[in-house]
Amino acid sequence: MLFSEQNYKRGIYRGSIEVICGSMFSGKTEELIRRLKRAQIAKLKVEIFKPRTDIRYDVSDVVSHDANSVQSTPVDHSSEILFLNADTQVVGIDEAQFFDAELPAVCNKLAEKGIRVIVAGLDMDFTGKPFGPMPALMCIAELVTKVNAVCVCCGSPAMYSFRKVSSEATVLLGEKESYEPRCRFCYHMTEA
């Protein structure tokens, strides 16, 4: 079905893009799983995707830090998401920051077909800069939910992922041994 003003006015399209973003340990994946499970309870056809490179908890499933999980399909490139089942109504995408720059266009194509797209990912890398396709996704989304962790230094809301290990690589898969959530003040205190 092609996107047209006439079809939109008749209410044929119900597609949308939702982005859940924040630092590490802020509950992004937990919120993604919660929304996807609610869609499944509503008997909607759901498909979930994640980058094949993310194997921290499971090779194929999307798993939160709290060990909640949902079955997913690992993909190498965002264009593979377009090959989903024809009857899919809701698409979940985890760790969006690790995808290629085509992910926003893929999400737009899905939404224009009437699919609800729910995307979760880090909005900033460990240096505090926008991460991968996340800024573009946030711009085109109907709904953006920013979640915060708790700063491990002072207990304030944390929006930064502080890297504890020495590495300049933008992508460094890791957990609590490599990263900790920090507020703005505590994150920048380490620079002084």
Rank of each mutant, 00 (worst) to 15 (best):
H188Q: 13
K50H: 02
M159L: 15
L2Y: 03
V106L: 03
S64H: 10
M189E: 14
N68I: 01
S69V: 01
I81Q: 06
D54H: 03
M134I: 14
V62K: 03
K176H: 15
C186Q: 06
H188A: 07
V144F: 12
K45N: 14
R14W: 02
F131S: 04
M134K: 02
C153Q: 13
F49N: 00
Q97E: 10
R182E: 09
M159W: 01
N7P: 00
G22Q: 12
F131N: 05
Q6V: 11
S167I: 04
P157D: 13
S161G: 09
Y160K: 13
D123L: 05
F162K: 13
G11L: 03
D54Q: 03
G121V: 07
L172T: 14
Y179T: 09
A136M: 15
D125Y: 06
V70F: 07
C154Q: 06
M134F: 04
G132W: 09
Y13R: 09
D125V: 09
R34S: 13
C186A: 07
G114C: 08
R116C: 03
F99S: 05
V119G: 00
P135R: 07
S156M: 08
G174Q: 11
T88L: 09
E95Q: 13
S23D: 06
A86Y: 08
M124C: 03
M159V: 02
F25V: 07
Q89E: 15
G15A: 08
T145F: 05
D66H: 12
T73R: 14
T145D: 08
S167H: 05
T73L: 06
K129T: 05
I20F: 09
S167F: 02
G174F: 12
A101P: 00
S16I: 01
A96V: 00
N85H: 15
D76R: 12
F25C: 08
H188L: 13
I55A: 07
K176N: 15
F98R: 06
M189S: 15
Q71V: 11
S166Y: 12
G174W: 13
R10E: 09
T190P: 00
F3R: 06
L103D: 05
G11I: 02
S161Y: 11
G128A: 04
I41V: 15
E168A: 14
A149K: 12
G92D: 04
P135S: 10
